[in-house]
Design a protein around this nucleic acid. Sequence first.
DNA 1: CCTGGCTACATTGTCGACAATGCCCCGTGT
DNA 2: ACACGGGGCATTGTCGACAATGTAGCCAGG
Lengths: 227, 227
Amino acid sequence: MYNPALEDDRALRTSADRVFEALQDAIVRGDIAPGSRVGETELAERFSTSRGPLREALRRLESRRLVERTPHVGIRIASLDHAALIELYYLREALEGMAARLAALNMTSDEVTGLKNLLLAHEQDEALKADTAYFQQEGDFDFHYRVIHGSHNTALTELLIGELYHRIRMYRYQFSAYANRPQKALGEHQRIVEAIEARDGDLAEMLMRRHISSARQNIEKHLKENS
Amino acid sequence: MYNPALEDDRALRTSADRVFEALQDAIVRGDIAPGSRVGETELAERFSTSRGPLREALRRLESRRLVERTPHVGIRIASLDHAALIELYYLREALEGMAARLAALNMTSDEVTGLKNLLLAHEQDEALKADTAYFQQEGDFDFHYRVIHGSHNTALTELLIGELYHRIRMYRYQFSAYANRPQKALGEHQRIVEAIEARDGDLAEMLMRRHISSARQNIEKHLKENS
DNA sequence: CCTGGCTACATTGTCGACAATGCCCCGTGT
DNA sequence: ACACGGGGCATTGTCGACAATGTAGCCAGG
């Protein structure tokens, strides 16, 4: 059987890159328990490679704060600390607020219409499915991805999507449902798009910041109740 | 001021970490020409180690965008792109604005008095030295470091100081003087501290954002004139 | 029984050798 | 003269072995 994905794997990717992505995915999805210590030999066997490429992958995961390393002792998978999650939301508020501002200034009209169509699709899904968490979460990521890309600021985009979002996704996978008020979020998304369409950077930033700030407060409330 | 040397005894004993620090410094200071291709063997000899630890260091520098890597071809030192510098200033505006807001809320009174004393010292240096660029730059970093730490948000602090500031410093070293208006900057710093002391997060954020936005516009003006 | 140090083991850190890939140059054909 | 292909060379990617370090368990002494 011809499998182009496998060939690409071998042709234009190094083993270290392949391990990096696979291990990152395993950590984000929780296949490896957060906070657990893992040995290099064990991981190397799991991903069918030697310790050399594995250690290169670990260095990159260390930069993304997905593993913690102490010299001569070993690595442990990042633990899920509530305080760290709250900190991440302050970062998101600042960065995505800026992204919304820049998106209002720099998005092409094609990108704006694409964004509007996305929300229309969400609206219909929402009407049908009432309150399904999964679709809302994926749709939520999709919306935010598009706004971030719309900033046309590559440093900002790479920082948010390439580094911070993996940590956010890890929390979402493992703490699962925060009861994240889908219909309310959809309404906030719509207002943000309206501000972007009106090319009102100030308003777009303010609405995005409130949107993320609300999500943070919602999480804080749930954490306080369940403790 | 942030001083990574304090942790050297415990954290930096491996060869890979030592090379990472040394190579990062060499890149930031411009000892290695930006955009130039460098071979792994050559670098390994330069830092008296083998290619194994060197490659681990390169992976981390790749995460910090200080080197660019293409598989099976090699690495090249990050080039100094004007557009990328402007993008970085938008990141700084968003992140340090948030840092100033959080500093106004979370700084201890000891930290606030330390910050005030720092500016008093700058004021006297300024009065004496009139317009010396170097002290102002170092003092500028010192001021911003303290505000960032004052946010008491470790994710924000590590992101700004551990990742973004190295890129900023690289530009400052190599494009040197932007005529960065020391006395005007000092006045802006003083107003920011006043807002922090008054525990006015909104005002502190606004002033910090204006401060960085002014610096960005100043750079943009100089770039336009010199092209 | 507890404490302190010491020994043995497991794990991480480092290195040199080998394999795989890309690049450059040269030769050949049109 | 130029385009295309093949071979040699330099560089990167990978691997297994060895050295260095931390840890746990044991033994001796109090």
